[in-house]
Design a protein around this nucleic acid. Sequence first.
DNA 1: ATCTCACATTAGAACCGTTCCAAATCGAGA
DNA 2: TCTCGATTTGGAACGGTTCTAATGTGAGAT
Lengths: 136, 136
Amino acid sequence: MAQKLMALLSGHGVQPSAQRAAVAKYVLATDEHPTADRVFSVVRESFPWISRATVYNTLNLFVEKGLLRQQALTQGSVVYDPNTARHHHFIDETTGAIHDVPWESVEVCNIEALEGFDVTDYQVVMRGRKRRRRRS
Amino acid sequence: MAQKLMALLSGHGVQPSAQRAAVAKYVLATDEHPTADRVFSVVRESFPWISRATVYNTLNLFVEKGLLRQQALTQGSVVYDPNTARHHHFIDETTGAIHDVPWESVEVCNIEALEGFDVTDYQVVMRGRKRRRRRS
DNA sequence: ATCTCACATTAGAACCGTTCCAAATCGAGA
DNA sequence: TCTCGATTTGGAACGGTTCTAATGTGAGAT
């Protein structure tokens, strides 16, 4: 598994290192849309000597190399999303949690016809409350 | 006109003052989605002795009273939008300019049917380049 | 008209997320 | 083993925003 990670990194032109692997292991697999600071705390649990600057450097590098996307969805700080395919976002206003919404589950029409704008990318940003999962 | 502004403020439960009127005059009429700092600069041109803290206080008050909406559309800082009706946003990636897109000009389907989410609000966030206006 | 008190304003400090910097360290290839 | 470029590091710096404590102001009571 660690092998796969390393391969993924080099495949994207990122020279592997222990620190980068530690960051990658968490941030490329999570669906919790962490802030840089959250990444720092989580990674430090298994890699206590990593520095904040390295986490920021690594996240920026991953974004530059296309392994991660930055999303400006909330006030205050950027979050990172390893899902680089097109998708939408749902923000739970009570918890602040951000959820991915599959591209196909929402249909957006007329974007191409918009007068005056060349739209190269778009997403629907939804807010509300996550419905409690009905017990099974 | 100044009268109308004052009436608008009191109508929303904001006790008027010279500073608040100066901020309102600009920020409630603009379509340029200014940051707090931009509001500060613009207002200071006609009201040089206003302080930064007052601008922040006033903007937060206006948001609280429903005169303004905060939008977290870009990295780094919040922008303010006096258009409190539902609408979408287009971000010009070359200039950073943010444009309102009328609610009716884009159609979004299936939002209500989304499994697991109670969506109370949503908008489409578009990115691209604003098409150069063809000369008339 | 005057007083008073709650509220508005202010400058500057504090805070938080992020980037910058210069020094130390590492590691791949010679 | 050596060298040199890349990586990592702690801390300073920075930009945006909020906090704080002191001061100013105006609307209503008297």
